[in-house]
């Protein structure tokens, strides 16, 4: 376990070194959050009766999404790993006393957590001081806050499990870049990164909520404001756990086959 933890230490150190990058990222998130809220605000002003969640809940959703972007953003995948899979250098990793799947998982989680920890506070601080409906409000209840943290951890784990599955699939594809971009798009669309799931038509949404993508950021971001509460929230959390096991299991299985492939064909 300890050896996988060292990836976290390494990542934190690396990210701390790149302070300019961190500030630039934070600035980007302010702007994106602001513009996103402006768009939803414009729709709200035009037809408030059509809004599927309260405006405040939408604003909270957007700011929390920006603050914890690194935990959930689909595009956070390491090119380095794709490269090493493509040129076969990953084979060297197999010489170390590590299992590849947990290693990829740990690396994926380390990248996300280290970034998020570094970047969430400035964004949150900014969002809290913003006035009126444009800033983050307090959570719906103490329970909601509790559930928010739990589902956030679960959501991050599901995201990482899915990301690891993409890495593993790269063993079997010709264009890892193409694959990466396409999967990222699908993920963005279905996990509520483009627009929050409640804004989709009800029938579409009913299907989307069953998919693994809905088990990522969708749950915690809505739980916080009570948009998802009670039995519905519990059902969503259960689905998160379900998908976590399914994705991780599928990843492990596929990894075994990939390892065989590398052993036989040399990458």
């Amino acid at each position: 376990m300890k050896k996988y933890l060292s990836f976290f230490r390494l990542r934190f150190l690396m990210n701390l070194q790149y302070r300019t990058a961190a500030w630039a990222g934070i600035a980007t998130q302010f702007v994106w959050g602001g513009l996103e809220i402006a768009v939803f605000g414009a729709f709200y002003k035009t037809q408030p009766e059509q809004f599927p969640m309260t405006f405040q809940a939408t604003v909270n959703y957007i700011w929390l999404q920006q603050a914890f972007l690194a935990l959930f953003a689909a595009w956070i995948l390491e090119n380095e790993i794709f490269e090493s899979i493509r040129d076969g250098n990953i084979a060297y990793e197999m010489c170390r006393p590590l299992h590849i799947y947990p290693m990829l998982f740990a690396r994926g989680l380390a990248v996300r957590v280290s970034r998020a920890v570094l970047r969430c506070f400035p964004v949150l601080l900014f969002a809290v001081v913003l006035p009126g409906p444009y800033g983050v409000s307090a959570p719906e209840s103490a329970e909601a806050l509790c559930l928010f943290f739990i589902t956030m951890i679960l959501g991050a784990l599901v995201t990482v499990a899915f990301g690891t599955l993409i890495y593993v699939s790269a063993f079997f594809t010709i264009s890892a870049q193409g694959l990466r971009l396409m999967v990222t798009c699908v993920m963005d669309f279905f996990n509520g990164a483009i627009i929050p799931l409640p804004f989709f038509p009800d029938k579409v949404r009913a299907v989307m909520e069953l998919l693994p993508f809905a088990a990522m950021q969708n749950v915690p971001l809505r739980v916080y404001s009570g948009d998802l509460a009670g039995r519905e929230a519990l059902r969503a959390a259960t689905l998160q756990i379900f998908w976590l096991f399914v994705l991780a299991g599928a990843g492990q299985l596929l990894m075994k086959r990939a390892e065989q492939k590398v052993r036989i064909q040399g990458g």
């Binding site: 230490r9 934190f12 150190l13 701390l16 070194q17 302070r19 961190a22």
Partner: peptide
């Protein structure tokens, strides 16, 4: 200056 330790790294976040 790039420094090694964790604490050092935190400090360089604001001052380098």
């Amino acid at each position: 200056k790039r420094t090694g330790g964790f604490k050092e790294a935190c400090r360089t976040l604001f001052h380098r």
